[in-house]
Design a protein around this nucleic acid. Structure first.
Lengths: 277, 277
DNA sequence: GTTGATCGTCCACATGGTGGACAAGCGGGA
DNA sequence: TCCCGCTTGTCCACCATGTGGACGATCAAC
């Protein structure tokens, strides 16, 4: 219900990729600013036209916003003309992170996961109907998936991290999330329809951890465990990605156990506010 | 030259505290958004009217921006109606911090300083003509100064961190910074005029570290050492604060040495990209 | 040289933001 | 209880501000 914008009449097909329709009230330039920042974050680095496309803005408008944001230090521009998140966001983020100390506490657990399993490990956070990848720790295994990267936003339900979180939500919230992400999921392919997601969610409810059997990129598998914030909500996730052959039983079971253990320790750390040993 | 806005005619006395006049080109709503975010960050938590005052916006306008930003998750609103930085800023900041990994590397050095000296230690960053306090580590000594806190922005030259950075700038940049901060410094009191700042800067150039002998709040002293980024610029600072009696010689000399040592190690870590031992 | 893509900029239009003014809520003091 | 001073949220007429179609410049590839 937090970000549930009312949809007037039928879902009018968006012309391009314009996703957000947060024009609830007041200043909508703010919404565009947020969309631009998120688009740059998700891309890591992007050109003006790419941002215009991914936000649904016209190119002149995107250009004006981008330059204005860069003028404020919220964005940087590298030599080639690509945009990236700026220093000012580091400063604001550092202050904001005090109220949400999750990442600092997560880093050691992430490292431990990567070391123990040899796969690449990720820390992600839920916000609204999306899951944002926040940090990556490389594993030692030389074949690595680069589907996920810091800043990437995916709707709940398409990656293992989002699935793990979905699996710990009560039915009502699960249905709401499915409804809210339905359109975006369908754009990512038929393998993300409700039936498939529900199947993977039931797996989470049975085993505690989630499995993404190559649903985003063929052969790139993922597993995740939900992490609970101080109020007991599944707000974060720890996940592992790698190639199919390393995510089959019985190794699958070992990985699941390792994920659950670190997720549990991290949840405890978040609850007590103190880093675990 | 980065943020040097041209001043039309005489410096028309600002009615309230309106500081920034970044209306160089394009969208100026973006400038207001940035100002609001910075104001909230600096206050930690603030009411609508306070933000309106500190940004120079009218209250309805501030209110609209604040609610719009909260709608995007960039701000939160607690039960009492106060605003604080939101979760979305944590996410954006985490991605942005990858390109500026200073804080992660600074934390252990900060802790070490606080432990070794018993005073509270701070990590700050320069941006434009300001220094922003980013992280605090409490010392063991029971009398602590709370003048500095995370998010606070001060013009270069009024606190020990800014002084340490000023002292490592070439003359030309020093003069530019003095000119750019002159008005704001004068608002903070006559003890921050050019002559006094120059005197403290010369101290930095002689000893390597800076000393703020209670220039912001009487009896609250500070010392700092500059930290250099990968390109060799003095972009950050480590500092200590405490009561006057603990910042006199010969202890002053010990504190300065400790600051310089940690600052040097941190600078090395920033240059090599790897955390020091 | 030609094509095809990007980029940055201009300017008339009207959309969307502005802020003075009003109303409501809250607590303290008499 | 009433009044006062403080806050906050909201309205709406005005016009400043942002918008985006269109143009010209730039660059790389073929």
């Amino acid at each position: 219900m937090a970000g549930a914008a009312e949809q007037p009449g039928g879902a009018e097909l968006a012309p391009s990729t314009s996703s957000r329709a947060t024009a609830t009230s007041g200043t909508q330039v703010v919404g565009r600013v947020a969309a631009v920042l998120q688009a740059v974050a998700a891309a890591g680095t992007a050109r003006t036209a790419e941002i215009a496309r991914s936000t649904g803005l016209t190119r002149p408008t995107a250009h004006r916003l981008l330059t204005a944001l860069a003028h404020e230090g919220l964005l940087d521009r590298d030599g080639t003309g690509s945009w990236a998140l700026g220093f000012e966001l580091t400063l604001l983020g550092a202050v904001a992170a005090q109220r949400y100390p999750a990442q600092d506490l997560a880093t050691p657990h992430l490292r431990r996961l990567a070391e123990a399993t040899g796969e690449s490990a990720f820390f992600s956070a839920r916000r609204g109907d999306e899951v944002i990848c926040l940090e990556r720790a490389e594993g030692s295994f030389p074949v690595r998936s680069h589907v996920l990267h810091e800043g990437l936003r995916l709707p709940l339900g398409v990656a293992s991290a989002g699935l793990a979180i979905l699996g710990h939500l009560p039915d009502e919230q699960l249905e709401a999330a499915l409804a809210a992400t339905r359109e975006r999921r369908s754009q990512l392919g038929p393998q993300h329809d409700d039936a498939h997601v529900r199947h993977l969610v039931s797996h989470v409810r049975e085993h505690g951890w989630s499995l993404n059997p190559g649903r985003i990129v063929e052969g790139s598998w993922g597993m995740a465990a939900a992490v609970f914030d101080a109020s007991g909500q599944p707000r974060y996730a720890l996940s592992l990605t790698g190639i199919e052959s390393r995510f089959r039983p019985p190794r699958q079971h070992q990985l699941g156990t390792a994920l659950l253990e670190q997720a549990h320790r991290l949840s405890t750390a978040l609850r007590t506010g103190r880093a675990a040993s």
